[in-house]
Structures are given as C-alpha cells and as structure tokens.
C-alpha cells in the first residue's frame, strides 16, 4: 500500500496511508511505517483522509504505533477519519485510548502541545 509522508515545520511526521489497510496490506504498511519511526520521530500524525477501509489487522498496526511512540515519550494523533473508518475505531474501543481528532490542524496541535 502507498504511504506518502511529509514533515511539517514543527517537526511533525505526517503519514497518509491510502486505500485499504487490511490483512493483505498490513505487512508492507508495517514495514514502511516503522521505518519512519526508527528515525527518532516523536510527533506523528496519521492523516486518514485517503484511507477507504480498515480491518482489525490495520487497527492492530495503529495500536502498535501508538504503543511504540508512547514508550519513547512521543505522541500520535489521528485525523480525517471517514465515517466508516471512525465506526471501526469506535467498535474496537480504540477511540478512547488513541487521540482521534477532526482536522489535520487539530492533530498537529495535539502532538506538538
């Protein structure tokens, strides 16, 4: 799967997974996302505007990222969830343990603050 990334002036790494994050794509996504995290990133935003579908396999990866970042004192925030994606986060209970906000600006503020 494609995961474009960018770095903001506030040193926030923004990852933008696109398409489907499921059991088939999660292996490649994991390799790509964790390669970014190896470089001492501590402020990470997952902008999910381009994500059409997520299954429990994809959620597992998001949870692992959140755990890894919080272990090294970093922060993760998610934004721009489509309604079907948000619903999956709600059913999983992840809404209450991850920082999920509406807009990209809110997400960047959440990891910088």
């Amino acid at each position: 799967m494609k995961i474009p990334s960018e770095k903001t002036r506030n040193k926030v790494l923004v990852l933008k997974p696109e398409g489907r994050l499921d059991s088939n794509s999660v292996g490649a996504a994991e390799t790509e996302m964790f390669a970014h995290l190896e470089t001492n990133e501590t402020r990470v935003v997952l902008d999910l505007a381009g994500l059409d579908y997520i299954s429990s396999s994809g959620l597992r990866l998001v949870l692992m990222m959140g755990k890894r970042l919080s272990l090294k004192g970093g922060k993760l925030a998610l934004c721009n969830l489509k309604p079907n994606i948000r619903e999956v986060f709600e059913i999983s209970g992840f809404i209450s343990i991850l920082t999920v906000v509406g807009t990209r600006a809110e997400a960047e503020a959440a990891v910088v603050g």
Partner: peptide, 15 residues
C-alpha cells in the same frame, strides 16, 4: 485497559 496494556489483537471475532 489503557494504551500500553491493551492487547494487540483479538478484535476480528469481536467485529
């Protein structure tokens, strides 16, 4: 449980 304690997995059947 909180973020660090939350097990990774077990959600598929729940869905």
């Amino acid at each position: 449980s909180d973020l660090q304690a939350r097990p990774v997995g077990g959600l598929g059947v729940h869905f």
